[in-house]
Design a protein around this nucleic acid. Sequence first.
DNA 1: AAGTATACCAACCGCGAGCGC
DNA 2: GGCGCTCGCGGTTGGTATACT
Length: 202
Amino acid sequence: MIPLSRRSTRKEVNRGSWTAEEDQKLAQVIEIHGPKRWKFVATKAGLNRCGKSCRLRWMNYLRPNIKRGNISDQEEDLILRLHRLLGNRWSLIAGRLPGRTDNEIKNYWNSHLSKKIKQRERQNRAVSKAEQESSDTKNIQVMEVNALTIGREDASKCEESFKSGFNGDEFFDCSSDEGPLNLEWMNKFLEMDESWFTLHDI
DNA sequence: AAGTATACCAACCGCGAGCGC
DNA sequence: GGCGCTCGCGGTTGGTATACT
């Protein structure tokens, strides 16, 4: 059964996968008129597709100098760093990876990297929990020694205070709303070379 | 070999920004 | 300022390939 989203019921336009013939027609029109005015390009090519669809096809597949597949370790590393810095701003990330498209990076992230990140977070949580437990035990031992020295009441207050810990979320207040994201500073970041990221351990 | 689950990725959709009238 | 149009972006869908049972 043809899925609802790909049926030609809403508008009488072609949907679904592009054929080699359609690609050829689109490329020919763009060669003459340039990759602009997509509605015009779509009409001119006689493809019976919407402008959006033509743009997407050109941007992701037909455009010259497109790299497909085989994302290298260096590229993957860069994607991870840029994502940490920029979040889901795929077009900005793609802008730092020559020949890669935002769609490809988004897909790569969703199918590969997001899983890797979750796995890594789980591992980190397990490690830090183990470290925390070990650290807690040591501190409690110290407090027990102190209790012998400074009196049980004071020491137990001290222990309570330690166990309650401090609130990281309060300390690193991330909830404040600083208004719309200013991309100026971000662009400066992006102009920096790889060494900057290494230097700052990003 | 057949059925089912999962991964991958091309394409679609909705929304917001920018622009001209 | 309001409106319509176009474009670009990010989220999502669903077809296909592959792995697993």
